[in-house]
């Protein structure tokens, strides 16, 4: 009997190990595949060989002329995603305070369900909504300033869309962070003559800052990586960087996606290069957010 149980233990250990290795292998495989394909257009053997520097700093993406520069696309992606994320952040934190502290249990439960549902809505649905409603709104706003837009497809539409899409992720993480701050700290603060608002802003939110940063970086990850919905409102500008909120824009993801299945050769291969750039940007941004968080942690330890 002992022998058989020992054997099944070993078999299961093998299965677990395989599952873990499989997941790790998939990540490595994906990174290697995208990177290997992505550097192809820059190798000497490639028929329409591109140079790395003009590719990274180029301010034009003219497939019709064979000119591929992602410099302005990188800028547009960063501006759109970060502004979208920063717009969502205060809303997310304030909603989380309402849900985690202020609202009575039943309302808080209902609001949590709403936020979770928002997070689960597929991005293409957000895209349809944005293409139908947000663009119209942007167009209206632009026309009050006497500016005409390309049917509302613009940097502003992307920012608003990404703010809406990153909000649920940031909110649910912040809620769990706020719920993890012990209520005894609220009592301590109130007993020291702090108002409820002072308690939320000086004790509860700082106490939840790890989760707030985690939510922000996950939200930004979603913003950087969002392709479908963004493509529906970006307008895919050919040159840049976009300097006006009402001008068309182009993001790394919308560049990869646009006409992917109707193209071959360099125009197809170069999209892998764009993918490599996107992965690097996400890694660098996460590292920077981590750095900011470290700074806040240190500041919280003392002045």
């Amino acid at each position: 009997m002992k022998g058989r149980r020992y054997l099944s233990d070993r078999i299961f250990r093998g299965i677990f190990l395989f599952a873990a290795l499989f997941a790790a292998a998939m990540i490595v495989l994906l990174l290697v595949f995208v990177t290997v394909r992505g550097i192809q257009p820059f190798l000497p053997s490639y028929p329409e060989r591109q140079s790395i520097l003009p590719f990274l700093t180029g301010m034009r993406w003219r497939a019709d002329q064979g000119v591929y520069g992602v410099g302005f696309i990188i800028i547009n992606t960063l501006v759109g995603s970060i502004l979208g994320g920063l717009l969502a952040l205060p809303l997310a934190v304030l909603s989380a305070i309402v849900i985690g502290r202020i609202a009575p249990p039943k309302i808080s439960q209902a609001l949590t369900t709403v936020v979770e549902t928002l997070a689960a809505i597929p991005s293409v649905v957000y895209g349809v909504f944005a293409a139908g409603k947000i663009t119209a709104l942007v167009d209206d706003i632009a026309s009050t300033f006497g500016i005409s837009t390309y049917g509302g497809s613009s940097q502003l539409a992307v920012i608003l869309l990404l703010a809406i899409m990153t909000y649920p992720t940031m909110t649910s993480l912040t809620i769990s962070g706020i719920k993890a701050v012990p209520l005894t700290l609220d009592s301590a603060s109130l007993a020291l003559g702090a108002t409820k608002m002072e308690t939320y802003f000086k004790v509860v939110i700082p106490g939840a800052r790890s989760s707030i940063f985690a939510g922000f970086s996950l939200g930004l990850g979603r913003a950087f990586g969002e392709a479908t919905a963004v493509s529906m409102v970006a307008g895919n500008a050919l040159i840049g960087p976009t300097t006006s909120l009402f001008e068309r824009t182009r993001t790394l993801t919308s560049t990869i996606l646009a006409g992917l299945h109707e193209t071959v050769g360099l125009d197809y291969d170069i999209r892998f290069s764009v993918g490599v750039v996107l992965m690097i940007i996400i890694l660098v941004t996460n590292a920077m957010i981590f750095g900011v968080k470290r700074h806040f942690d240190k500041k919280a330890e003392g002045k």
């Binding site: 005894t184 700290l185 301590a188 007993a191 020291l192 002072e198 000086k202 700082p206 106490g207 330890e301």
Partner: peptide, 23 residues
Amino acid sequence: MVFQQPNPFPKSIFDNAAYGLVC
């Protein structure tokens, strides 16, 4: 008021002692 469980804020010793005055 002093509570049953010690409940200092997750802040520095100084900021804990100064909290009420800062508020």
